[in-house]
Design a protein around this nucleic acid. Structure first.
Length: 369
DNA sequence: CGTCATGATTCTGC
DNA sequence: GCAGAATCATGACG
């Protein structure tokens, strides 16, 4: 501790200064209080105080210069609006007297379609950000409060010894608040950046379109063509297909949505594909001896549907199929709904003009011709 | 580089 | 909330 500066330093002995400091530190609190008390009771105190006031009057810089430099909180408002729009902050809890909620129209170019982002990963990460944001915000607010109280007390205490007007205290509090709000702004900015990064990552990910693997396409097509009368896989069936194809359930839903509409629009184009898959499916099923195609729909009651048609002969099978399809208890409510609407039924028709040779079991080809 | 195929998104109706 | 329809965006291919 008492290390002298190396070399021949001419300055005052550092150890002396250090010793003085240590002496102050060693001073007990009582001792300090006693001194303060003594000073307060000094007979010259009032006179001294008035002198101090006078000096201050002459030298003090005008206070109002310091305070009202409040910049237009445009940026803060922008950040607030952005956080609100992103769902990080909530509309309540905004004490800043500004035009708090313009959120609906705020950030016009920034984030066009918030409600579209319902991805669970995105939401999870967003809520993580929100959590951190709020906990930090709370910390800052608490620290600000504590610091303000401390400084106010200190100044009030000091006002007995030196001229400190309430206005000055107020001003000081204002300065503290502005410092803390600067920190808050930084926090808000960081949060916004984090959300933006997350958003762009997510959007990038979903914009990237990759073709499904052959396996996935095959699995989906097999199901589609083997359930051509009612290509609405139940939730379980979708899960199964997703698992088999190595894709997500929503991708399965997308695929079926696209497939149905595109098939309906241009059935001729899909005939060849249908031949391939229905032929394949039936080949598979005949191999095992179960008409319902075990691979494409293991756990779906609707599998049984194709059964009867492997046994019926061509004529009239389509009608029977239609009728059955509409009567059969649908595995998922959605299918029932769509059936009720008659959405798919009208479109099923001209299926296979060329059914696989020697394949009486082909549901679809038999169904139509 | 243009075109087609295809996965994803958006809008609308029920 | 789901399905159909339209549309967008990107990959594959000649």
């Amino acid at each position: 501790m008492d290390a002298q500066p190396p070399g021949s330093g001419p300055g005052p002995a550092t150890s002396d200064v250090l010793q003085q400091i240590m002496a102050i530190a060693d001073q007990s609190l009582d001792e300090a209080q006693a001194r303060k008390h003594a000073l307060n009771c000094h007979r010259m105190k009032p006179a001294l105080f008035s002198v101090l006031c006078e000096i201050k009057e002459k030298t003090a810089v005008s206070i109002h210069g310091i305070q009202e430099e409040d910049p237009p909180h445009a940026q803060l408002t922008r950040l607030d609006n952005m956080l609100l729009a992103e769902g990080v902050s909530r509309p309540e809890n905004r004490e800043r007297g500004g035009p708090a909620v313009v959120a609906g129209t705020a950030t016009p170019g920034g984030c066009p379609n918030d409600n579209s982002i319902e991805h669970s990963d995105y939401r999870a990460k967003l809520s993580q950000i929100r959590q951190i944001y709020y906990s930090e915000l709370e910390k800052y607010e608490q620290a600000c409060h504590e610091f303000t109280t401390h400084v106010t007390n200190l100044l009030q205490e000091q006002s007995r010894l030196r001229p400190v007007s309430p206005r000055e205290i107020e001003c000081m509090v204002g300065v503290i608040h502005s410092k803390f709000s600067a920190i808050q702004m930084q926090l808000k900015q960081s949060t916004c950046e984090a959300v933006m990064t997350l958003r762009s990552q997510f959007l990038d990910a979903r914009r990237k379109r990759r073709n499904f693997s052959k396996q996935a396409t095959e699995v989906l097509n097999e199901y589609f063509y083997s359930h051509l009368s009612n290509p609405y896989p139940s939730e379980e069936a979708k899960e199964e297909l997703a698992r088999k194809g190595g894709i997500t359930v929503s991708q399965v839903s997308n695929w079926f949505g696209n497939k149905r509409i595109r098939y309906k629009k241009n059935m001729r184009k899909f005939q060849e594909e249908a031949t391939i898959y229905t032929g394949k499916t039936v080949a598979d099923t005949t191999e095992v001896g179960v008409p319902g195609n075990h691979t494409s729909c293991p756990s779906t009651p609707s599998c049984g549907l194709s059964g009867p048609f492997t046994l019926t002969n061509a004529g009239g099978a389509f009608l029977t199929l239609q009728t059955l399809a509409s009567l059969r208890p649908s595995p998922g409510g959605a299918s029932l709904q769509s059936q009720a609407r008659g959405g798919w039924q009208g479109a099923t028709p001209p299926l296979l003009t060329t059914s696989p040779a020697g394949d009486p079991g082909n549901v679809n080809s038999d169904a139509f011709r």
